[in-house]
Write a protein that binds this DNA or RNA. Structure first.
Length: 573
RNA sequence: GUGCCCGUAGCUCAGUCGGAUAGAGCACAAGCCUUCUAAGCUUGGGGUCGCAGGUUCGAAUCCUGCCGGGCACGCCA
């Protein structure tokens, strides 16, 4: 907030310098980058603009900085501006600069951090989209949580977001699924045959076969021929598995707005239509009896087959129609969250979007790297074939929703993630998610106490700036003021892990401040003269808002009290 | 072989658009509870930012080449 204000001040100074001929008119004013210097001696905020434009302006950075400072309009929040080092401009703020900001935070409340910069734009986030041939495993979990939070973040900057799951409910894999179930069914009926190696080996297939037999469905299908039975089994199993997936996702707090079935594309006849469209635009050609899409014209490594020489369509063909449909539906921005093993798919899909006449930049791919699930240092196998993998459902049951989500979000999605179950469960006391939640609970507890003593927080009272005179309080105020800018940046970069880093810093700064109250009464909130307590409570309320809203975007609860965990008693010996 | 991701403290990882003396947690060492939750806090040790060049006022960050780990390279999905 203060950053916006100061960047305007700098922009005005820049314009004034150009007016005065101190900066050539050919130099474009870059985005003003204001940062919090590591050392307090370097002011409250600093900008490097003079260093950035020095070369283009053909003047020394220091000279430019001096000129900018000389022509800088005054601002009531500034008490000093200086040029330092190679040409940084350091800003010293008046001690009470943050008061308006706190007032604004309290007024914005639940909406604090949300902006409307993308108002009126529709965005679709497609994620999970796992084939309904088996339960979700921990790799899908990362995709699910990341996609869910990206959706929340994009909504926070104004997009009208739709969270979507694309279901491949046709094709080879569903046929294999049907055959797998049918084979297990035959086994249950006493037939003796080796279970095919290419079929799904997991025990859930047997469960489905048992259910089929148990509810009499299998009997009704006995009049059908082999292929029809297999197809029926496939549909039945896919439907059941998809329902299981939906349940597992719900257990993680992930709910999609829509499940879009691939079969719907076939029913609509959407694929021939989009093929015609591409052919018309000259992006297709026939070769070796197959139909090709000239994706190399848009930067792909090689052209891609849409219709195989045997006349059948590729998976890619359906996906083209699916993506074309997204734009027809009115989404101006599309985000697909995929596993990194599908990275090779990105150039051809962007090529499709471009070939259809859209900006390829409107389609973003977020690729999640591998998740290594370990338990006490040992890698847990995730082979679907052998059916030994660790399911997401089991992870949630064992670790819990909040911890699971936080762990997935803690690391950049561009890096592989080691998810240590032993750490997530056994070391709950040092778990960062509890640390952040605890900060929230502690603040709530202080408010409850204030209420109980009859001197509760009165929101309507004006905040008296002079009452917040501690350095730590200014640091906290500055931190919560950075929140909206951070959300904007994170939504732009599609990098939610930065929010966990930020929340941890907020929690840490608060915990440190809080604990000083044990020794130093000035740091205590309760028991102060009324105006001071009111001011401190207002600050704490802002902290509470930021933690609550931040955790909310992450889909993690912000409890008002934390129940003690067994084993903590050791600390009191 | 080609493309993408990763390499930062003993371990797990942050590090924004190139910025001032590279950070946190865990682990280790020493302290702090009559008071708003000690699930906490304070202090300390610990670094060839994989290696070598380059770009420039300045590089963990950008470029090139290597080394190491992962993933992908189909008329499969």
């Amino acid at each position: 907030m203060i950053e916006q204000r100061l960047s305007q001040v700098v922009t005005q100074a820049f314009a004034a310098c150009q007016e005065a001929g101190e900066i050539p008119r050919t130099v474009v004013c870059p985005p003003i980058h204001l940062e919090r210097p590591r050392q307090s001696a370097h002011g409250d905020l600093a900008t490097n603009i003079a260093l950035v434009i020095a070369k283009a302006a053909k003047r020394s950075p220091r000279a430019i900085a001096e000129a900018l400072v000389a022509r800088m309009p005054s601002d009531p929040h500034l008490q000093g501006v200086s040029v330092a080092g190679p040409g940084f401009i350091n800003f010293d703020l008046i001690p009470t600069w943050f008061v308006e900001q706190l007032t604004e935070i309290i007024a914005a409340d639940q909406r604090y951090g949300c902006t409307n910069i993308h108002q009126g734009e529709r965005c679709q986030v497609e994620f999970v989209s796992a084939n309904p041939t088996g339960p979700l495993h921990v790799g899908h979990g990362r995709n699910a949580i990341l996609g869910d939070v990206l959706g929340n973040l994009l909504a926070a900057v104004g997009y009208q977001v739709t969270k979507e799951y694309y279901v491949n409910d046709t094709g080879v894999q569903i046929e294999t699924l049907g055959r797998s179930v049918l084979c297990r069914l035959r086994e249950l009926q006493g037939e003796k045959a080796a279970f095919p190696a290419e079929c799904y080996q997991g025990s859930y297939i047997i469960d489905i076969a048992q259910q089929l037999q148990g509810d009499g469905t299998a009997v009704a299908w006995q009049t059908l021929d082999e292929r029809a039975q297999s197809l029926a089994c496939g549909r039945y199993a896919a439907d059941r598995i998809l329902r299981g997936i939906t349940d597992d996702l719900a257990a993680c707090g992930v709910v999609h707005d829509r499940y879009f079935l691939e079969s719907a594309l076939h029913v609509e006849g959407a694929i021939p239509v989009v093929i015609e469209q591409l052919r018309h635009a000259g992006h297709l050609y026939e070769q070796d009896d197959a139909l090709w899409f000239r994706s190399t014209a848009f930067g792909d490594d090689k052209d891609r087959v849409i219709r195989k020489s045997d006349g059948s369509l590729t998976y890619f063909a359906a996906d083209i129609a699916y993506h074309a449909r997204k734009y027809v539906e009115g989404f101006s921005r599309v985000v697909d969250v995929l596993g990194a093993d599908h990275a090779g798919y990105v150039p051809r899909m962007k090529a499709v979007v471009a070939a259809l006449g859209h900006d390829a930049g409107s389609l973003d791919y977020v690729l999640t790297q591998l998740v290594n699930l370990t338990r006490g240092g040992e890698v847990v196998s995730m082979s679907t074939r052998r059916g030994e993998y660790e399911t997401l459902a089991r992870l949630i049951a064992e670790v819990g929703r909040d911890v699971t989500r936080y762990f997935y979000l803690m690391r950049s999605h561009t890096a592989q993630l080691d998810f240590d179950l032993a750490l997530a469960t056994a070391q709950t006391l040092e778990n960062p998610v509890y640390y952040v939640q605890y900060a929230h609970a502690r603040i709530c507890s202080i408010f409850a106490k204030a209420e109980a003593t009859g001197a509760g927080w009165r929101q309507r009272d004006p905040l008296e700036a002079s009452q917040l005179d501690l350095e730590e309080e200014r640091a906290l105020a500055r931190l919560v003021g950075e929140y909206p800018g951070l959300i904007r940046a994170i939504a732009e970069e599609l990098a939610p892990h930065r929010l966990t880093v930020y929340l941890l810093e907020v929690a840490r700064t608060f915990q440190s401040y809080y604990t000083r109250g044990k020794q130093d009464p000035r740091y205590r909130v309760l028991g102060q003269a009324l105006p001071k307590m009111q001011a401190k409570l207002s600050l704490l309320h802002c902290l509470r808002i930021v933690i609550r809203n931040g955790l909310g975007l992450l889909g993690i609860s912000a409890p008002e009290r934390m129940n003690r965990i067994e084993g903590d008693a050791a600390h009191h010996d």
